[in-house]
Amino acid sequence: MNFSALAARLSLEHAAGPVPASFDGVYAGDLLSRVMSRLEKDQLWITIMNNVNVVAVASLSEAAAVILAEDVSLLPEAAAAAEEKGIAVFRTEMTAYEICREISRLADGGAI
């Protein structure tokens, strides 16, 4: 699925890192070990966690990008780590459910 199209359609705000071209599925969750157990390579990860460990988990799991839900801001230390490790982080006011619902709708309609 096309990430730039998704970011534009949902008005995602770019917080850090290089913008990925595409993604392949989604995982939403906040407990980091659960995330590492389930998040697959090249998936989008939706979370409300905003500390530096999020960047480590996204990097080790090879996520396509992280989307921070519910208007959460990336902490400065985490933003610096994301730039250094090349992890894309975006943010939005939407809840995880709303983001997932929109991705599903856009994907079904062939828009992303």
Binding site: L31, L32, S33, M36, S37, M49
Partner: peptide
């Protein structure tokens, strides 16, 4: 509060 403590550390290591 940092996102750890899910009780999945050792199970993940095994997995």
């Amino acid at each position: 509060a940092l996102g750890f403590g899910a009780g999945m550390g050792l199970p993940n290591m095994k997995k």
